[in-house]
Design a protein around this nucleic acid. Structure first.
Lengths: 235, 235
DNA sequence: TGTACATCAGTGAACGCGCGTTCACTGATGTAC
DNA sequence: TGTACATCAGTGAACGCGCGTTCACTGATGTAC
């Protein structure tokens, strides 16, 4: 416990309290969700008094917003990396992205909860106000993935949303314990892989649709630029 | 406000407090989520003192559990109704179910939040303990939908999970304000319809899979029995 | 190189608040006789 | 048909608790001279 005490703490000054608080918040949000998250407990875990966080964050919400923002950035980074993995065609690149998405949701429930759990079962008073910018990054990344693979504009975007929704749905149902975690054809990753493949194959909706240009064997000529460059923010 | 006061309240005894509390809880959970939900406020809205709910529910969680349970029952009812709509083949029946799912999530954010929001960003200490039975109902309904349409067993179940995950993903992303609510090809219902069609068409996963038996024009001979009959519970 | 001082990042005590829950009580209801 | 009484569903006051936030403060740090 108290992850950073002893290691970083050197007396009166913490040294890296901001980071320690973000990490504690990630852990707590993973356990209790962003609504159940509790600032005093985060301070305790960081080994400081409950007033100390106010040196670094305006209030409780600001810390959660920071976690959310970092979550979007990290997810964007991972998706981009998956997409850029060399030697893949459009099919497999998409498959890698899907896998990366599930991995992120599983490995980083704190981030994931901060990013998405606020908007479920709650009227979105402020639809991820601060997170919006970070989400735009993600959306741009997804949209950009599709550019050049298809002449008709609307279709790739719709497909991107479908893949995202399927990934998100599987991730959240799994987290809620409503999906079997193993099973011949029903393990989460298999569900996602087969689903994405089906979406790609059946692309374009009910009646319509040319096939995805590079459906089989197409190798991307140009690596899409990382959308991270716009809002870039390392930690 | 105070939905039931004046209408039903006739003096010292409320008359129908249990229902009034459930309804207040639905409204509050819709606004603040199950974690932000607050028992005292629910009592206030029902026009009774904050101690009164304990005549009907063991504690706060019991009320939320009741809402969750009713939500699963209601969703099951709606999905069954959509599936049973006469004159549809397997394709359109599935489409109706998808639409019913989205409608439910939109119209009943209180139910939906109680059913699913607990499991997001939180380690599921008790994976919908009480809701489990109700969920089994839902799962059985979905599974049963597929029986008889396909000889290979595992496939329909996988497909059911995919359709469910896609629906759930779209519903939650929409609720979080992360999906465009309108748009040529990207309105939620269009995303879902096209996605379900693609899943049905591309069924069976990456390399495999015979087509869905009744893919076009198949009319179900037998209406599947309502799974409601098992746990049936009217309100 | 040493000193004075501004600035920064913490402390710890206290506040106000609202929530979940309990408890002794009281008013209403229905039923046995 | 009327009365006595058990049972039920509320009240209202109080509790303990924990959380978010504020405030005057103090110890550490770094920089101008």
């Amino acid at each position: 416990m108290t992850a950073s005490r002893g290691k970083h703490r050197q007396g009166y000054h913490h040294g890296n309290l901001r980071e320690a608080l973000v990490n504690a918040a990630r852990k707590l949000i993973a356990e209790r969700g962003p609504v159940g998250f509790n600032l005093a407990e985060a301070a305790r875990q960081a080994g400081v008094s409950s007033a100390a966080p106010y040196r670094h964050f305006a209030d409780r919400d600001a810390l959660i917003a920071e976690v959310r923002q970092r979550g979007f950035a990290e997810l964007g980074r991972r998706l981009t990396a998956a997409w850029r993995r060399p030697g893949s065609n459009a099919d497999t690149a998409f498959r890698h992205m899907g896998k990366a998405y599930l991995t992120f949701a599983r490995e980083e429930p704190g981030y994931y909860g901060a990013m998405f759990a606020t908007g479920i079962g709650r009227k979105s008073q402020h639809p991820s106000r601060r997170g919006q910018g970070a989400f735009d990054t993600l959306e741009a990344a997804i949209a950009r993935l599709m550019v050049g693979t298809e002449e008709r504009r609307g279709i790739p975007r719709a497909l991107a949303y479908q893949v995202w929704a399927l990934s998100h749905g599987i991730a959240t149902l799994l987290a809620a314990g409503l999906l079997p975690s193993a099973g011949a054809r029903t393990s989460p990753s298999k569900l996602l892989r087969a689903g994405v493949a089906a979406l790609l194959r059946g692309m374009g909706g009910a009646g319509a649709g040319p096939r995805l240009a590079g459906r089989r064997g197409m190798t991307r000529k140009t690596s899409p630029r990382s959308p991270q460059q716009k809002t870039g923010r390392r930690r």
